[in-house]
């Protein structure tokens, strides 16, 4: 993306949406999250990467301050998956849940878990995450 980004910027194309993304609290794994972030940038999204071990409050503050269309959360461990639900609850408490669509992913995450915690979408891999994101912001698939 370091090579492609200036070329994308040169085209002057407006971002098709804004994504805030991070690996959840207690989890230091970020390969999957980085792949999703790169693919999203490549697809035309503006991406704000909060990094790893992201506390729910940090996600909430980012949603409040940056007003993204999408919030992406990643976890590699079954032990850290619950932090996704905690973050969604924190968004609800802050009155921000309706302002953003929440996407979740990572090796142990399933559609069932996504539904259980009240996320908007689950994607099993980076490529389908892009398709899902395009759908959520109402843009045509590429």
């Amino acid at each position: 993306m370091a090579v492609l980004k200036p070329l994308l910027t040169e085209t002057g194309a407006e971002p098709i949406g804004k994504l805030v993304i991070g690996t959840v609290k207690g989890d230091l794994h970020d390969i999957g999250k980085n792949l999703v972030a790169m693919m999203m940038e490549g697809a035309g999204f503006q991406v704000v990467d909060l990094g790893l071990d992201t506390q729910p409050e940090k996600f909430v503050n980012a949603v409040r301050e940056l007003n993204p269309d999408l919030l992406g959360m990643s976890a590699l461990l079954t032990t850290t998956m619950p932090a996704m639900g905690d973050t969604i609850n924190a968004l609800i408490e802050a009155g921000l849940r309706d302002r953003v669509k929440v996407m979740v992913g990572g090796a142990p995450v399933t559609q069932g878990f996504c539904d259980e915690i009240g996320a908007d979408a689950y994607s099993p891999d980076a490529a389908s995450a892009v398709d899902t994101a395009l759908e959520l912001v109402g843009a045509p698939k590429k």
């Binding site: 609290k25 207690g26 989890d27 230091l28 794994h29 970020d30 390969i31 071990d53 461990l77 032990t79 850290t80």
Partner: peptide, 18 residues
Amino acid sequence: YGVPGLHVPKDVGFQYRE
């Protein structure tokens, strides 16, 4: 290494940093 109690919460297993 990300060690529980030092770099990650005490009830999360150790992990690798990249």
